[in-house]
Design a protein around this nucleic acid. Sequence first.
DNA 1: CGCCCTATTGAGATTCATCAACTGCGGTGG
DNA 2: CCACCGCAGTTGATGAATCTCAATAGGGCG
Lengths: 243, 243
Amino acid sequence: MTLDAAHAHDYSHNTDIVPAHWRTPRPQVKATVEDKIFDALNTAGTKVRVRRNETIFNDGDTASHTYRIASGTVRLCRHLADGRRQVADFLSEGDVFGLTDEDQRTCSAEAISDVTLLAYPQTQIERAKREAPGVNREILSLITRKFLQSQNHLMMLGRQSAKERIASFLLMLAERSGSSEGDTLPLPMGRLDIADFLGLTIETVCRVISEMKRERIVGLPDLHSIVLNNIDALQALADGDDE
Amino acid sequence: MTLDAAHAHDYSHNTDIVPAHWRTPRPQVKATVEDKIFDALNTAGTKVRVRRNETIFNDGDTASHTYRIASGTVRLCRHLADGRRQVADFLSEGDVFGLTDEDQRTCSAEAISDVTLLAYPQTQIERAKREAPGVNREILSLITRKFLQSQNHLMMLGRQSAKERIASFLLMLAERSGSSEGDTLPLPMGRLDIADFLGLTIETVCRVISEMKRERIVGLPDLHSIVLNNIDALQALADGDDE
DNA sequence: CGCCCTATTGAGATTCATCAACTGCGGTGG
DNA sequence: CCACCGCAGTTGATGAATCTCAATAGGGCG
């Protein structure tokens, strides 16, 4: 049974109240759109722990809560009947998911690592929308950003080669985490997750990353890190300046 | 120069006021989300005509207006430097596009057929958001729907074969136009547009459609129509029940 | 009627998927 | 502490799907 499918109160193992500092989990000066939305709730949410590879909710479940990530990484994905899978997004600390007006989930959410979530009943979100002016605008801003991300993703899947997709993917992760040349980028997801995000097979992902390593564009200190030796080269690859 | 790039008042050839019946352009009982948003504007918008293959706005343009389609078909797409193109959406009568809080376009909009648009300055939209309660909610609902469409699109591009994509595409068009078995579906876009929507080449699109014709799943009375002889077969193909 | 643009069909090249073997690391238990 | 086990990742060989290049067909408009 997934969390959404469970009764709202059935968090017997984890009803702690969240420390206040989790409101602004990332070290940054400006409040994010996510911060603004959740500050307006005036409630800390229910803390939920999910272990690696467990499902948070399934496509088709009733949407009872909105979640914010306190720690860990989550993937949003859709499955076809025959097991094929498309990962739509990777989410990490501070990110929000499951925020929707629809009453049914249209994708599943799964924990890539052990994850701590803050769960907010949809009714609380609805109340905040009514009572806090500006929350609607922030939510709109959030989904607009997600929509634009999705358009980028479409271009990657529809029109880029395997190597271009991987380069774009690494640049996307670098931008999200604020990494720059020489930094070590955490890669919390496995190769299969990357493959399913990029519309490739795990073997192709491995081969392309290995090739980039041979070309000294990236370094691979361990399975869950990648060193960005040459961002310009990555950018050139992503832009198709290869031939 | 695209429309957005032009001055807001430079519609010398088309400043007519739009007839009232355009508020609800499609024959349906219920008002669409689009209807609700534009009814709240209490203004008919400026009529703009755009000829086939002309650009309405470009990626990167300043976003000055929101558009609603009175007649014709529009594609939203993004271009890579080397000319590769990804079509993100096809829009037809009654559909809205260019509605954004951002001040820059993140895709281009191009006329697939001769098109008549209603243009609304973003300031009017902003006013409606402030003054008409519920408009925010309708806009949120609209973009949420677009986001879900985009997720479907991702699955098509990332994980479906050419034949599955074409079957899914035809079913999507059928659903949008309310067509059912035996109906003739209008296909206003050319083969290249379809290819760029599905992440395929024009040759592959032709071959797959020809194959479906040989299998009597569809009929091709002319280039811009397709007869849905067997929706169940299309559904089976889209679901991957092929092997 | 003829031209031009788009679509269609064919042949060969390419990219990526598939199938299969092997590696390496982390955890577990002797 | 070390050996074994299992899973995730990597690499190689082969094949299939789709792209590319090229030639032909068709349809609408002047």
